[in-house]
């Protein structure tokens, strides 16, 4: 594997393999000495054209735990704000000897452009491109589900039979897209719930069922309810009348929470807007995996960096 651009092109064995390596990385995080010498001498660049705290920090912790050198390159206050294009930025990073570039960009397909261009020879990790994909988020979500389901016996297993409901702004969500493909590959079934205005107009070929009523989906007794953030920065049209109405119809409030089984997982990729898509009660309940997701994010990103960078370059 040279790049990680999407979850759509991961097959089951590759995906399970990544999650298994992440298990080993999670073991490292439990011991006093959390650093591995594996990527000593490798340079990883965080190239973020969009705001991010947890993904950028998570990659940073992951790279440092593996002893790679990590450089943060954010668009704000950089040559990009002076008008530099993606090509020149990439060539600059190549000239500095980057072995991997973790890229987040507002344009769908930006990571793929970098990977297929001849501008830079480094491994490209997609950390979110527009409304397209965010593969490491889906991998850490799958890792979290598998860990809650199977605990210590997680290695080698997929998510066969698991029923996952994803709620919220599917239209703009790269997290949802990456999850749809990966969960399907791992044998889980996915139900999307959203206002019709926040669903893509064309979901032909998506391996999902679609609903518009959260209460119906909750009464169908899902194993996982994944709430998505209402992305204020992408709400450029009147997708719903107002936040209160959205919250009442599609928010996970305490009453809906109480109708879920005690072992139903409540997931959220963060950052959460408490009181809008998720109530404080749901976010802080024992069903919530939000903090596990953050911790597992580091393990999964360590696994991906290891698999992309440690071995001999593939020709």
């Amino acid at each position: 594997m040279k790049h990680l651009l999407s979850t759509k092109d991961l097959d089951r064995d590759t995906a399970v393999g990544i999650l298994d390596v992440a298990e080993d990385m999670a073991d490292v995080a439990t011991r006093e000495m959390k650093k591995l010498p594996t990527l000593r001498g490798k340079t990883v660049i965080n190239l973020f054209f969009e705001d991010s705290t947890r993904t950028r920090t998570s990659f940073e912790v992951a790279a440092k735990r593996l002893s790679a050198d990590l450089i943060n390159f954010t668009a704000k206050g950089s040559s990009v704000s002076k008008g530099e294009g993606l090509k020149d930025t990439a060539q600059t990073l190549a000239a500095m000897g980057a072995d991997a570039v973790v890229v987040r960009h507002s344009a769908s397909g930006a990571a793929q452009v970098l990977a297929e261009s001849k501008w830079i020879d480094a491994s490209i990790l997609n950390a979110g491109d527009g409304t397209h994909e965010h593969p490491t988020q889906a991998l850490l979500d799958a890792f979290t589900m598998r860990k809650r389901l199977h605990g210590e016996a997680s290695r080698g297993r997929d998510l066969a039979g698991l029923r996952v409901t994803i709620v919220g702004d599917i239209l703009h969500s790269r997290v949802a897209r990456s999850n749809v493909w990966l969960l399907n590959t791992l044998g889980a079934s996915v139900n999307l719930v959203a206002p019709a205005t926040l669903l893509p107009s064309n979901t032909t070929g998506w391996p999902v069922t679609i609903g518009y009523d959260l209460d119906e989906s909750i009464d169908a007794d899902p194993d996982v309810v994944m709430m998505l953030r209402i992305q204020a920065e992408r709400m450029h049209a009147a997708f719903f009348p107002n936040p209160r109405e959205y919250s009442r119809q599609w928010g996970l409030d305490d009453e809906r929470l109480s109708r879920l089984r005690p072992d139903t997982m409540v997931m959220h990729p963060g950052p959460m807007v408490r009181g809008l898509e998720i109530s404080a009660g749901a976010a802080d309940s024992s069903r919530s995996t939000v903090l596990e997701q953050v911790a597992n994010g580091v393990s999964v990103r360590m696994a991906v960096l290891y698999l992309l960078l440690a071995g001999a370059a593939e020709s």
Partner: peptide
């Protein structure tokens, strides 16, 4: 005790899956 992450020949071989510690 898995030693994969500490090997000095990682970059010379295809990526190997680590074992368990």
């Amino acid at each position: 005790l898995d030693v994969t992450m500490y090997r000095d020949d990682l970059a010379r071989n295809p990526t190997r899956a680590p074992g368990r510690t």
